[in-house]
Design a protein around this nucleic acid. Structure first.
Lengths: 188, 188
DNA sequence: GACAAAAAACCGACTGGGTGGTATCATTAC
DNA sequence: GTAATGATACCACCCAGTCGGTTTTTTGTC
C-alpha cells in the first residue's frame, strides 16, 4: 500500500477519472452523446488507455452503473442504521437517499439514462433488478402495505420529476412534498 | 370511401405509416436504435419519401411525440367528462389515462424514451412542459394539496415501474395499487 | 372538359463526418 | 525481464442528410 510513494502511474486514479468523465458526459449530453473519444479526452487519457481499463463502451457504462448503485445502497444503509423507529424505516431511507446529493452531481440524470437503457440492455436490467431486490430483502418488509408501496412510487415519481423538470416545482414546495412523504411513513 | 378507389398516392396514410414505424422501432430498440433507413424500410417508403414528410430525424421524433401527447390529452378529457364527482377528478383521470392502452402498444416505453430525451432537447422539453401545463390549467386545481401531488407522483412512479420492469409486480397487485390510488382521490 | 404548368409526392445513389474497436509501439513498475 | 500501463495511428462501419431525378396530383386558364 505504501508503495504509492513516488508512483508516477496511478491506474486507480486514472480509472476513477474515467468514471467521472463518463458521468459528466452522460449528464451533459445523455447516453447517446457518450463517445469513447470524448471520455478519454476529458479524462486526459488516450483512447488506448481508456480501452485498457474498460474493454468496451458497454463495460464502461456497466461499471459506472454499478458504482452508482453501490453508492445509493450505502446511503440507504446509513439512513436505515440511523433511524430509531423501525416502522417505515426503509421507505424513509429510500426517499431520503434519492434526494441526497451524490458524489456525482446531478446523479439523477445519470440514473435516468440508465433507467432508459435498461429496457434494451438485459445485463444492465439484471444488475438494477438485483440491486433493487437485494435492498428490499435487506431492509424492506416482506409484505408491504398498499400505502407503503404508494409512498415508494411517489418517491420515484418525484425523482423522475426532478430529472425531467416537467412540472417545475419551486424548491420550497419540493421540500414540503418530501417532508409530507416522510411524515406519512410514520403512519403505516 | 369510394373516392379512394382510384387514388394511387395517399400521403396521409404514408405519413401515418411512418409514425407507426417510428414508434415500433423506438419501442423495440430505443431512441438510439432509431435510424431513418430503418423507419423508411419498415414503412415501405424510400428514404427520400421519408424526408419529404419529415424534414429531419428530429422533426420525426417531435411529430410522434406531439401525436402521443394529444392522445393522452384526449384520454384525460374523456375520463374527466365521464366522472360525476368533481373532487379529485383530474387526478383520477390522470391515473387512469396513463394505464390505458394507447394506439401505439407499449406506448409507455415510447414515453419513457421521450422523457429521457427531454433533458437534452429543449424543443421536446418545451412541448412536454406546455402539454402538462395546459392539462393542469384545464382540469387541475389551482393550489393542489400535498396529498394530491403525492398521488400524481405515485401515478408517475407506478408508470415508470411499468416501463422499466424493475420491481416486477404481479398484475393483480398492480391493479390493487391503482385501485388504492383511485380510492385515495375521493378523500382529498 | 382539355391541357399545360406548377406543386406535391416519392425515389435511391451518394457524401461526409463521426465512432467503436484494433494493432502497434512506448513507458513505467517491480 | 516482463507485465501492467498508456499513446498513436488507423480502419471499417454506420447513419443523417443531400441532390438530381421521376411520377402523380392539383391548379389555372381557355
Amino acid at each position: 500500500m505504501n508503495k504509492n510513494y513516488q508512483k508516477k502511474k496511478q491506474p486507480e486514479a486514472v480509472r476513477a477519472g474515467l468514471m467521472d468523465a463518463t458521468a459528466e458526459i452522460i449528464i451533459e449530453k445523455g447516453l447517446s452523446g457518450l463517445t469513447l473519444d470524448a471520455v478519454a479526452q476529458r479524462a486526459g487519457v488516450s483512447k488506448g488507455g481508456l480501452i485498457h481499463h474498460f474493454a468496451s463502451k458497454h463495460a464502461l457504462i456497466l461499471g459506472l452503473n454499478r458504482e452508482i448503485l453501490a453508492e445509493y445502497a450505502r446511503f440507504i444503509d446509513e439512513y436505515v442504521a440511523a433511524d430509531p423507529q423501525p416502522r417505515g424505516r426503509f421507505i424513509r431511507a429510500y426517499i431520503r437517499s434519492f434526494h441526497t446529493p451524490l458524489k456525482y452531481r446531478e446523479a439523477a440524470k445519470l440514473f435516468k439514462a440508465f433507467a432508459l437503457e435498461m429496457s434494451y440492455d438485459e445485463e444492465l436490467h439484471k444488475i438494477c433488478c438485483d440491486w433493487y431486490q437485494d435492498i428490499v430483502e435487506k431492509h424492506g418488509e416482506a409484505h408491504p402495505s398498499l400505502k407503503s408501496q404508494m409512498l415508494l412510487f411517489a418517491a420515484d415519481g418525484l425523482w423522475m420529476e426532478e430529472c425531467t423538470g416537467l412540472v417545475s416545482i419551486p424548491s420550497a414546495q419540493h421540500e414540503a412534498i418530501i417532508d409530507y412523504l416522510i411524515q406519512q411513513t410514520y403512519d403505516l
